[in-house]
Every structure is written in structure tokens, then in C-alpha cells.
Design a binder for these strands. Structure first.
Length: 557
RNA sequence: GACCCCAUCGUCUAGUCAGGUCCAGGACAUCAGGUUUUCAUCCUGAAAACACGGGUUCGAAUCCCGUUGGGGUCACCA
């Protein structure tokens, strides 16, 4: 029975790279009728949080990745091999560490992090590779006993054989050989009593009966340590599959730092000395000044998501999508994310690239994993999303758009109102690449008629003032027609305006549609003109046309 | 730097394991036309790759070696 697991470390939101790993682990278990386990690797007390853990659950289930065993959430989880949070398994790790200590396979070491850092710096300066010098191993038994009795803080290190060949079998890469001489006596238990990643992962995989370890390539080298540990503990060896990494379009590793890099670049470009202010209604700094200073001073420091987002908003720049949640917020569909992610590092072969969950489950296998790293191409993702949106029924699109608005644009939904929503959704489906597009471009639908700001651009001026009759003249002529229109429907609007265009604009609907579009939206872009007018309603349309005409009189004075 | 991994259009990839049907197929992006009331779509077409050098072989994108390039790891992070 196949048992695969995804073992994230919960800090922030689930990253797309992690999501892809989870997807492959999940798909493999499903494809083989096995079980998929979720385990929370929260052994870094500084970085893990319960909020982040919950966010991971949401991100995973949103993508349709549901776990058979693990923490309980929304019907997922449970299982006999728990607890599934490493922070709740501390005694287990302690016991195994004791066992290794007793067998002489591991030993306590008393150096402080500070001392080790100094030693590393020295090695770096002298241009040699740093290895732990085993000083603690040379301590005599009495000293060790005394230190232990004094409760001196210490870690536990594994005694690594001096020279032995370690063979790492891997189903995607074949065999890799590493000499134990490349490894030093690495830490397995930290001074705070928590296990390190290497130790916890080996023990949990064994105890949870994990048969397949599918994880990122950055762990390939680490596997040597895990094999050493498995041998020392007399554990079974799972089957390994190390999958290639995901990169940014520029070839760098995709990471959360990208967000900060883009923000810093913009702040520097603008030469900002103090944090910018948020917009109306309450203008206040996007973050406290001391936080701002700390962030600017330390290039390695990352802004929390909220601060990053409000800073980006104040700077009027878009943050790159990195986490699953970013893509959800940006209006991508979960099934599209799943499809695209699966394509990064795996291929079903042939010309197939659009597929659904069921297809993935029935076709996924490790022998078709791609060995080379893939760059994350947002354009292609966007194109996939567009295709999926267009392929939907009007009802489904409307439902999905509503759900998206409910979660991210509640105010917009309330202002638009239920009645108009159906029209709004229908008018936007074929022109949207994401579920967020209609909201971004449809702001003018929900503002007051007096708030419409007329854009100063060539396109606007041209549509309004060029030609004979010009745009203003058309507006003036069309206003009474609209005012008297018996039924305010898309059909009647179309009939009336088309007829008008035939009679007064040489059949060129654009001559009339474009001035109207500008009058009601403030700019040259909106859904199809009849849809736009229908959604706005007669009153707003008339108001806005009059306002636009009044502006002309003001301009020409 | 040491160790390890990887290498087909700009990008994701098919083809590689079982060498010939591949002067290399698809998709995204790009470019050129066309449709359209704006934007976005949509339609048609074009340009675009086997990193390099040696082998092996009648024959290599496919096998071997080297070079170059890219990446990963070298924490009391995971």
C-alpha cells in the first residue's frame, strides 16, 4: 500500500512550489489507491504559527488536495499514526535520540551557536569548507557528566562514519553517490529539545509507514543524512523521488523574497525616506516608522503580508503572486492552478496539456517526471485561466464570480446589488482573464454619478471631439432617445442605438458607442456598450451623459 | 570553494530509457494579416530549438566521455 506524505513547514501561506509538491504526493497516492498523509513540520518555534497552519489547510483544500491522514480540517485528516504535528511528538524524538546516545551513535555537544558561527566565519576566511570539529566527542566522560548535571544547554549530534559511500536511490534521478566525508556530525536534537528537520523526518516517515517520499530537489543531498539515520536506527528505506525546482522567469529561485525585492526597488526609485500614506478615507503611514526603518536597513528582512500589500497599494504597484493565496486573490481558478502546476515538472506525454483532476489521478506516475527545473510562466497560466473561464456556462461563471467577490470584494458586491450582478457577470465573462478582472475594470459601475472622473487621454479627446458630428453631438442627440426608451433592456438599447448609428453615423456604431462609453465610465474601456448601459440603469446613464456634456461646455468656454 | 543534480524553440514541453518514420511536434509568448462598438477575445499565417567538442554506429536530439552553462546543498531553517 502506497503511503505518501506532504510535510510543510507552516510559515506564511503555501508557496506554489510547495503546492506542486503536495499535488504530486497526493496524485501519486490517489493513482495507486494509497493514502496521502499531511504532516506539519513545526519544529522551528520561531517561524511556525497556528495561523499559518490553518492557512495551509485552506490553501490545500482550495486546490482540491485533501488528505486521508493528518490534522483534522474540513473532513480531512485523522488516522492512527498521529499526532501529525511534530511539535506534539517531542518525546518520540527524545526517545530515539537517547537510544542513539546509548548506542554511542550520537553524542551531546555543548558549543553555543555563537561559537559555531565564529568557527564557520574562520573557515570561510581561510577559504576552506567548514566541518564541525567533533570537539565534544573528545570530552572525557566525567566532564560530559558534569555538564549534563549542570543542565548546560546542548545539542545532540550524530556520529557520522568517517568514510563510507552512501548510495541514494531515486526514481527520477537514478542512483547518486555521496561520501560520508562530505558530511559532518550534524545536529539531530536542538538545544530547545526540538528535533532538527533531518531527525524528525526520518523518525516520522518510519513511524507513519511512509513508503514514498516525493519532495523538492533541494533535499537530494540531505537524503544522505537521512539514510545514515535510517541505518543507525535500523529503519526501513522509503522510495525517494526528488522533483526539480520551480524558478522565476529570470531563472532565479522562486521565493517570497521577490515581493520585498520589488517593493525595495520601487521605494528606492522614488527616493522615499518615510513610509507612504494609505489613501482615503484615513491617510496614515502604511506601517510604523520604526518598522519601515528596520525593513530598509536590513535587506534580508521580509515584510509581513499585510504591510507588504498596503505598501504596494500606496506605491501603486502590483505584487508578484507567489503563494497559492496570491493566485486565488488574483482570480485564478483552482482547477487551472492544479493543471498548470502539474505541468511544471510532469507531462502526460504527447500533446496533452489541458486536463482535470480525474485525468491527473489516472495518468500520474513518477516515471514521467521532468528532471530539469521549470520556470513559472504567468502568461501561460493566465491563458489557461482565460480558456477555463470562457468554457464555463454563464451560470457557473456567475456563481464563481460571486464567490470570489464575496471573499475579496464584499463592498463591490453590496454596492452593485443582486439585480445587476447577473447582467454584470454575463457582460464580463468573455472579456475576463481572471475572476478579479471584472472588479478591477468595473469600479465605475458602483460609484456615484458625480464621482466619475473623465480621463485625459488622446483616445478620450478623439472620441468626443473628432468627426462631424463629433462625439458630444452624438451624446446630445442620443440622450433624449435613451430617456424615452420604453424598455431598458440590452435588446432595446441595441435596436435603438444601432438604428441611430445607421441614420446619423453612417452605420458606424463606434462613433456613438465610444462617446457613450466615455460618458458613463470616464474612459475608453468597458464591457460591450449595450451591456454597460443596461447594468448602469437609465438614471445613471442620463446623469452621466449630462455631466459629460456639461464638461464640454466648461471646456469650450 | 567542495559535493551533488540538470541541459530540445524566448518559456513549458513531446520525442530520449527500447538510435532510423524528427531538415524535430504541440502550447504560451512574439510578429504579420483578418473579424469586432472599446478593452479583452476570436480566426489565419509566420518566425523560432536538439549548448559545444569528441567518440560509438551504416545511421545520434536519442548511447558514452569531456567542456561550457544553469541550479541545489554545505544552519541548533525546513
Amino acid at each position: 500500500m502506497v503511503r505518501s506524505r506532504f510535510a510543510p513547514s507552516p510559515s506564511g501561506h503555501l508557496h506554489v512550489g510547495g503546492a506542486r509538491t503536495a499535488l504530486f504526493c497526493w496524485a501519486y497516492a490517489r493513482a495507486r489507491g494509497g493514502r496521502f498523509i499531511l504532516r506539519i513540520e513545526d519544529t522551528d518555534q520561531k517561524r511556525s504559527s497556528e495561523a499559518a497552519t490553518q492557512a495551509f489547510f485552506e490553501d490545500l483544500t482550495w486546490l482540491g488536495i485533501r488528505w486521508d491522514e493528518g490534522p483534522e480540517f474540513d473532513g480531512c485528516g485523522g488516522g492512527e499514526a498521529g499526532p501529525y504535528r511534530q511539535s506534539q511528538r517531542l518525546d518520540l524524538y527524545r526517545r530515539h535520540a537517547d537510544q542513539l546516545n546509548a548506542a554511542g551513535a550520537a553524542y551531546p555537544a555543548f558549543e553555543t551557536p555563537h561559537m559555531l558561527e565564529a568557527a564557520r566565519a574562520r573557515a570561510r576566511d581561510e577559504g576552506r569548507a567548514y566541518r564541525y570539529d567533533r570537539a565534544a566527542l573528545k570530552l572525557d566522560a566525567a566532564t560530559i557528566r558534569r555538564y549534563l548535571d549542570e543542565k548546560r544547554p546542548h545539542v545532540v549530534r550524530l556520529k557520522v562514519p568517517d568514510t563510507c559511500q552512501i548510495t541514494i536511490p531515486d526514481v527520477v534521478r537514478g542512483e547518486t553517490h555521496v561520501s560520508s566525508a562530505e558530511l559532518d556530525d550534524f545536529v539531530i536534537l536542538k538545544a530547545d529539545g526540538y528535533p532538527t528537520y533531518h531527525f524528525a523526518v526520518v523518525i516520522d516517515d518510519e513511524l507513519m509507514g511512509v513508503t514514498h517520499v516525493i519532495r523538492g530537489e533541494e533535499h537530494l543531498g540531505n537524503t544522505a543524512k537521512h539514510i545514515l539515520l535510517q541505518d543507525a536506527l535500523d529503519f526501513r528505506r522509503p522510495i525517494y523521488a526528488h522533483i526539480s525546482l520551480i524558478f522565476n522567469p529570470d531563472g532565479s529561485k522562486m521565493s517570497k523574497r521577490e515581493r520585498d525585492i520589488r517593493l525595495r526597488r520601487e521605494v528606492k526609485r522614488l527616493g522615499l525616506q518615510v513610509p507612504p500614506e494609505t489613501g482615503v478615507p484615513t491617510a496614515q503611514p502604511v506601517m510604523p516608522v520604526d518598522q519601515w526603518r528596520r525593513w530598509l536597513a536590513d535587506k534580508d528582512q521580509q515584510l509581513d503580508l499585510e504591510s507588504a500589500r498596503s505598501l504596494a497599494e500606496a506605491l501603486k504597484i502590483d505584487l508578484p503572486e507567489i503563494d497559492v493565496e496570491d493566485f486565488r486573490r488574483a482570480g485564478y481558478l483552482p482547477e487551472v492552478m492544479m493543471n498548470y502546476l502539474a505541468l511544471l515538472g510532469w507531462s502526460p506525454g504527447g500533446d496533452i496539456e489541458k486536463f482535470d483532476r480525474e485525468f491527473l489521478i489516472s495518468h500520474f506516475d513518477l516515471d514521467r517526471m521532468i528532471k530539469s527545473p521549470a520556470r513559472f510562466d504567468r502568461d501561460k497560466l493566465l491563458a489557461f485561466n482565460l480558456d477555463a473561464l470562457q468554457a464555463m456556462s454563464t451560470e457557473e461563471f456567475s456563481d464563481r464570480l460571486r464567490a470570489h467577490c464575496l471573499r475579496y470584494h464584499r463592498d463591490f458586491l453590496d454596492m452593485l446589488g443582486n439585480e445587476k450582478f447577473a447582467l454584470f457577470a454575463a457582460a464580463n465573462q468573455q472579456r475576463s482573464k481572471t475572476l478579479d478582472d471584472p472588479v478591477r475594470s468595473g469600479r465605475f459601475f458602483v460609484i456615484g454619478d458625480e464621482e466619475v472622473a473623465y480621463e485625459h487621454s488622446k483616445a478620450v479627446t478623439k472620441a468626443l471631439t473628432h468627426g462631424d458630428p463629433n462625439g458630444y453631438a452624438h451624446l446630445k442627440a442620443v440622450e433624449p432617445l435613451l430617456k424615452e426608451l420604453p424598455h431598458w433592456t440590452i435588446k432595446r438599447l441595441e435596436e435603438t442605438l444601432t438604428q441611430y448609428a445607421n441614420e446619423h453615423a453612417g452605420g458606424k456604431l463606434g462613433k456613438v458607442a465610444q462617446p457613450l462609453r466615455i460618458a458613463v465610465s470616464g474612459g475608453p474601456v468597458s464591457p460591450a456598450i449595450f451591456d454597460t448601459l443596461a447594468i448602469l440603469g437609465r438614471e445613471s446613464v442620463i446623469n452621466r451623459i449630462r455631466r459629460c456634456l456639461a464638461m464640454r461646455e466648461r471646456d469650450t468656454k
